[in-house]
Design a binder for these strands. Structure first.
Lengths: 231, 231
DNA sequence: CGGTATATTGAAATTTCTCAAGGACTGTGG
DNA sequence: CCACAGTCCTTGAGAAATTTCAATATACCG
């Protein structure tokens, strides 16, 4: 398998675009081995809309055509290890790469679903519900790849990063987080997220994990299933 | 080809859910022959988020799994003719159904892209820009299937329907439409949309049609390419 | 230690919503 | 043909949510 270690980058003014260096296959897909990334668009006046987060184990259909035509970028938060895989190779002999195949299937299934859930989140929920919903989603996704402990997980995101995903100003994200803390639902300090009252969060956010297609994902743990190239 | 004529429904309090009656194939896809439809979610308090419009020629990946798990519905605006096609059959002999195959490819390519553009639209643009952007998108998509004349097209949507797609109240949609009219950009009366100043609209909306993957769609005209079953 | 990015809080400004009322259009039954 | 009901459109005015601006505080890094 052509494992191709990719660059990690320092954070600076938001996310760094992943540069697809060298001779990447035309139908290459990007897999996150370690660290966080996101898809995002840039609009006028430096505004940025984060379209979705990518956590370890996630696959990003980074066909170059999609990247240029779809009009969005992929960027990282802090040091990140990634690999570019040949889509053809995985598809041609799926039995050789069962975990990757499953990850790919989940990705194709969940991508659209998550994008549509985000439309709903940004469009229909209040700031309070919105933050709660994102917190719920991230926790569940991280839990699935074994990156949570008890009710806690690491989210290497600033309040501005959250705001750009939720279409809220960083100031308002701050106020909402404070309220969530005062309400005893969750705390978020120094990139550490703690869900104090998970069921209440789910209820308030109107969170139904069905859109994540969890059963299709099983428990892929990137660190154990994939031989990672060190960055 | 198993053409299966489906029901048309009267509009009432928003969109009517398409019921997939009878023995639909597990991997059936829905194609809009005539009329308008949309994907939508329903939240608490009767709020509805429209996730995307479906115009004639559009294909809706209505795998039952997606429908139930993705958590959204498909509904129609007014009388609509649809057909359910067997995905396997099209994929197994694409040379028999070139237009359908192309439509399917476009659909898979553009679906995700459009969903992400909508996140951006709802999240980052002002009400004015948002309405302008939706207008631009709908016009281009209808133009592609020959449903426009000059700068005019029919959009069988109420201001509330637009609001549910844009995450705006119908009252505010009304005010924005008035402003667009006063500014000489577009008018929308009795379901007739007229783009008075298309380039200005594009500029204001920040509309870049790349996300629609137009070149992949070519000019599919549903009424000429598909033998429609009458409803 | 100084410099930079991030977090926190207050207050004013802005956008958008909700509520409310009247007008326009459509179809139905008498 | 008219009256009626229902939905949609239109406009105003006050309310609510969120943003922006501004100032300070805190943490991190060389």
């Amino acid at each position: 398998m052509t494992l191709r270690s990719a660059l990690s980058a320092q954070r600076r003014h938001g996310s760094n675009q992943i540069s697809v260096a060298g001779t990447s296959p035309a139908n290459g897909v990007l897999i996150i081995l370690n660290g966080f990334a996101c898809r995002y668009k840039v609009l006028h006046a430096g505004r940025r809309q984060i379209l979705g987060y990518l956590v370890p184990g996630d696959i990003c259909g980074l066909r170059l055509s999609t990247l240029s035509r779809g009009g969005y970028y992929v960027g990282t938060f802090g040091p990140t290890e990634t690999a570019i895989l040949s889509l053809e190779r995985i598809l041609s002999c799926p039995e050789l790469y069962p975990n990757l195949t499953r990850a790919l299937q989940w990705s194709m299934l969940a991508e659209e679903s998550i994008a549509r859930e985000w439309v709903t989140n940004v469009g229909q929920r209040t700031a309070y519900e919105r933050v709660a919903h994102l917190i719920c989603e991230m926790f569940v996704r991280l839990q699935l790849v074994g990156l949570t402990h008890d009710n806690q997980c690491t989210l290497p995101l600033t309040q501005r990063d959250l705001g750009d995903a939720l279409s809220l100003s960083s100031v308002h994200v701050n106020r909402v987080l404070r309220q969530l803390r005062l309400d005893g639902l969750a705390t978020f300090h120094h990139s550490e997220l703690v869900l104090t009252d998970r069921s209440a969060l789910h209820r308030i956010a109107g969170f139904d994990s069905a859109y994540l297609h969890l059963q299709a994902r099983s428990c892929i743990r990137p660190s154990t299933n994939i031989t990672a190239a060190s960055a």
